[in-house]
């Protein structure tokens, strides 16, 4: 099939709504994945920056 009628989005991407608001919760500071998260957060790195290091 082809894209629906009236599909006129630039760069083929349409935004409809933002995400629902989040809930703040406390992560358990345990395990290798949390430590990676803490490292990213403390150095304000994104995932891809972190992957490169």
């Amino acid at each position: 099939p082809s894209l629906p009628e009236g599909w006129s989005a630039e760069s083929n991407f349409v935004v409809h709504a933002p995400l629902s608001s989040s809930v703040n919760r406390k992560l358990e500071p345990v395990g290798p994945h949390f430590l990676a998260h803490a490292r990213r957060k403390r150095h304000s790195r994104t995932f891809s920056e972190d992957d490169r290091i």
Binding site: L19, S20, S21, S22, V23, N24, R25, K26, L27, E28, P29, G31, P32, L35, H37, A38, R39, K41, R42
Partner: peptide, 27 residues
């Protein structure tokens, strides 16, 4: 064994609420 090589300060910072409190997706 994961935190053995960390300094005390490092652990303190990583377990600080600024790091542990994170937004969680509602849906």
């Amino acid at each position: 064994s994961l935190v053995a090589e960390f300094d005390h300060e490092d652990i303190e910072q990583s377990t600080h609420p600024a790091v542990t409190v994170a937004p969680h997706l509602a849906k």
